[in-house]
Amino acid sequence: MPHLLYSLHLQPPGPATVTMMSDEYLVECKIDDDDEEEEKLHQTPPPPPQFSTPATPQPLLSQPESRDPYGINQHLKVEFSDVLAEPASPHSCDRVWIYSGIGFESARIWSYRCLTLLCAVPVSLLTGCLFACLACLHIWCVMPCVQVFHSCLPCARSLWLSVVNIFIAPLCSSVARCCSGIYVKLSKE
């Protein structure tokens, strides 16, 4: 696919002349004999995904594949072999070991499901309210106070430097001069 860059300058009385120009005035023209690509150029592109209508309506609350995508609760992935294990010498019957594993997993899964059925919605509402209160306090109380301090501290700093230079520094230097003549001798008697 060859590309030609050219500039054409037409003069009214005479023939067309080709002149050298800076790169900002150059136009890129693609020369191609392929008709399929030419048809693609004349077609309107599809709209961006946010503006196109989906072919099938999606449910309001879709369940993601992973409910812990950031791995917050990796430490809670407990299996039967993480909790119970028999050493090589004392073994129980094989059926006892299999049924105890099934019982452990069933009790763990169904207890979790029952507890989440009872507690998940109220706890999520409470944590949502807690984080909303924290966000509100941060947005409307903490950050305005921080901005007030940032805007007032330069003035307070210059005021404090003036107080130190006018009152405290001369007082400290005069006390230092008064005390510079004092000598302390330690002797054993």
Rank of each mutant, 00 (worst) to 15 (best):
K30P: 00
K30R: 13
I31R: 05
I31C: 09
D33V: 01
D33R: 03
D34L: 12
D34V: 05
D34N: 12
D34A: 09
D34P: 00
D35N: 01
D35A: 01
E36I: 06
E36R: 15
E37N: 04
E37Q: 06
E38N: 05
K40N: 13
L41A: 09
L41S: 05
H42A: 02
Q43W: 05
T44R: 09
P45A: 08
P46S: 15
P46H: 08
P46G: 05
P48L: 10
P49A: 12
P49G: 01
P49S: 07
P49D: 05
P49H: 03
Q50A: 08
F51W: 11
S52D: 14
S52F: 02
A55W: 05
A55V: 11
T56M: 06
T56W: 03
T56G: 00
Q58M: 08
Q58C: 06
P59C: 06
L60E: 13
L60T: 14
L61N: 10
L61D: 03
S62Y: 08
Q63W: 05
P64Q: 10
P64C: 04
P64F: 01
E65A: 10
E65S: 10
E65M: 04
S66R: 11
S66M: 07
R67H: 08
P69R: 04
Y70D: 09
I72R: 14
I72V: 14
I72H: 12
Q74I: 00
Q74S: 09
H75T: 12
L76T: 02
L76K: 06
L76M: 13
K77G: 02
K77Y: 11
V78C: 01
V78P: 00
F80W: 13
F80K: 04
S81W: 01
D82T: 06
V83D: 03
V83R: 02
V83Q: 05
L84F: 14
A85H: 07
E86C: 08
E86F: 10
P87Q: 06
A88Y: 15
S89Q: 07
S89E: 11
H91D: 08
S92R: 15
C93A: 11
C93R: 04
D94M: 06
R95C: 08
V96R: 04
V96D: 02
W97E: 07
I98A: 13
Y99L: 11
G101P: 03
G101K: 09
I102P: 00
I102E: 04
I102K: 13
G103V: 04
G103H: 08
S106G: 00
A107T: 06
R108Q: 10
I109R: 08
I109N: 06
I109L: 14
W110E: 15
S111T: 14
R113S: 14
C114L: 13
L115D: 07
L115Y: 12
T116W: 07
L117N: 09
L117W: 13
C119E: 11
A120M: 12
A120T: 02
V121A: 11
P122W: 15
P122L: 15
P122N: 14
S124Y: 10
L125C: 11
L126H: 11
